[in-house]
Design a protein around this nucleic acid. Structure first.
Lengths: 344, 344
DNA sequence: TTGTAGGCGTTATCAT
DNA sequence: ATGATAACGCCTACAA
């Protein structure tokens, strides 16, 4: 690979001049400029990004910590996160986040990224401290699990920062959940259960909390303790299948799932067990991925505005990197009613 | 951020010793080693990856060029690509590949990655030359579109390198397509159409070619020229909807789609138009994503072994980076028969 | 066993 | 308008 030094020699100038040309400084004599450009072309020279980063102390690289990229919801978020980053000249690292290897991950990230974008993970306090000390901003798309109680922090509805002080973008779950619950009541349901991912620190914890709270607001109590669907299709399917097998008449007539993948899994379980949806069991999800519109019956879901969330989360991170004041946001989650909760 | 220099001072040694400790060289006296480790801990020192890369000329970063991450199939591949990379201590850049900005992308990549993993894109020859000159290996998961004719290159069935000389992992499409076509014949179909993404350089081109060829092998001719579904759900839905609207009795009774997203879109179009599947039109896909098993009716599809493909593609790239001889591979594509082509 | 010093390819300051 | 040159943080002969 040709270096700037070589370009300089070939053009018969100093390295500084090459830099001037590269940075489009207008102080260079036109003829010199031509010579330099010529040399660059001949040598096929490209500035080395690593060297540049070392000097400028910015990498224009960002880490996005994913939970499970096999979930089309997260992939959809990533789509817009990446597009926004690219638009600003940033590169995206995708890392599947494993809590057990957080230490290791942190070490790998040092000096490699200008910022970190979480997808609702609860990062260890030490990690947060570490990043703060290094001046690496961390923001989150989806409110981190630990920040569930942050409404009290700033007094605004829902709040936009978690306990850990991370700005985040997320759906304003509580009102959305209330709309969903009201819809279910209209369909005659009062015994409503929730399925979540019970793993500590799961991004779905926030939704579970919002559901519980919204249920209370609507004057209901949970029909049963939350089911654990592990956040994935197969786990959810098995969990509900177990329930249906052991309880001929389950304690609930409607089931809200913290994500669509689990809702689809529950639909499959009902099919396997011959339970009619929504007649015997109504099912709803929380993201409205493409798949949800194509299942049999199609799934009712709270729509998660992925484009807005992905873009805003990245803009927020970029602003933080640029040391500009930033604030999180809560987006409205529209209720999409389909056949899994409504007959007509 | 603490530097190695500071650690050295604090431990009362030279910078070299710190390096020795960091790289686990056993030449350091145990006591010195302890002191250094202590200093590292106290200062919270982490080696700067950028500086290290500049010196060692390897970044342990790899770029993965994605077509459309919104497609669960690509996301599924990425899942295993990323896991494999991580296992080997490599980081993954995800970049949505835009042909129009290839030049720009190339420049951004210089000095930033040790290798490039394509997802079946046809890269410009100059890019390939560029990477070759830089010693940056390029491999592809999914056979690049331009390599469709490479069977003649090495004489083996299907071949494993494209025209551009890129090693690739892919399903062995032709036998898989033949199985699918035979299945459709058994269901009484002889007028079989194909839907693809007609964009030049699309990764789906290979599948289209394999279908055409397999159709001939089975003694059939295409029922119509390939439909263009753009590779996505909505485009496919619109394309088929147009057909169904203008042709009361379409020229085909079965439709094979180059990916599942398009197949699902076609299913939706049939539902919109009140065409029964499979009675009036049989539909099949080519990847077997989760969604395909949950549609109404569920979709027949050629199963693409994503885990094997993702892992092998990354292993291949890693081997190339390590300057080890490498070879592509063709994986078997199992036919999964479901309700969209079969009634019972 | 430990220290010195010369790069790696840029950027940017300060002369000229 | 252009040229020298000192960092940036790390690696690694080579010396001591």
């Amino acid at each position: 690979m040709a270096t700037r030094q070589q370009v300089a020699e070939r053009a018969g100038v100093s390295v500084a001049v090459v830099s001037y040309v590269l940075n489009n400084r207008k102080i260079v004599k036109e003829e010199t400029r031509r010579k330099v450009l010529e040399a660059i072309r001949e040598l096929g020279y490209r500035p080395n990004q690593t060297a540049r980063s070392l000097k400028t102390k910015q990498t224009r690289q960002i880490a996005v910590l994913i939970h499970y990229i096999g979930n089309p919801f997260e992939a959809g978020l990533l789509l817009h996160i990446e597009a926004t980053a690219k638009r600003h000249g940033y590169f995206i690292f995708v890392q599947t986040y494993e809590p057990a290897r957080e230490e290791e991950l942190r070490a790998m990230l040092i000096g490699r990224v200008d910022g970190v974008l979480l997808l609702g993970h609860a990062l260890a306090a030490e990690s947060l401290d570490d990043f703060r000390a290094l001046g690496i901003p961390v923001v989150s798309a989806m409110q981190p699990a630990d920040g569930a109680a942050d409404a009290s922090t700033d007094g605004t509805a829902g709040g936009t920062t978690g306990e850990a002080g991370l700005p985040s973008i997320d759906v304003d779950w509580q009102p959305a959940m209330r709309r969903l619950i009201r819809h279910l009541r209209e369909q005659g349901h009062t015994r409503i259960a929730f399925m979540t991912d019970a793993t500590p620190g799961s991004p779905l914890g926030v939704r579970a909390a919002a559901f519980a709270s919204a249920l209370g607001d609507e004057g209901l109590t949970p029909a049963t303790s939350p089911l654990d669907g592990g956040g994935r299709f197969e786990r959810a399917r098995e969990t509900l299948d177990d329930r249906l097998a052991t309880q001929p008449a389950p304690a609930f007539t409607a089931l809200v799932c913290a994500n669509d993948l689990m809702a689809a899994g529950c639909l499959a379980a009902c099919r396997d067990r011959g339970r009619r949806v929504p007649q015997e069991l109504a099912i709803a999800g929380c993201e409205d991925i493409l798949m949800s519109s194509q299942t049999d019956p199609p799934l009712t879901a709270i729509h998660y505005p992925r484009q807005a969330a992905g873009e805003q989360a990245m803009e927020m991170l970029l602003a933080a990197i640029a040391k500009t004041p930033i604030a999180g946001a809560r987006l409205p989650g529209e209720l999409i009613v389909r056949g899994s909760t409504s007959i007509r």
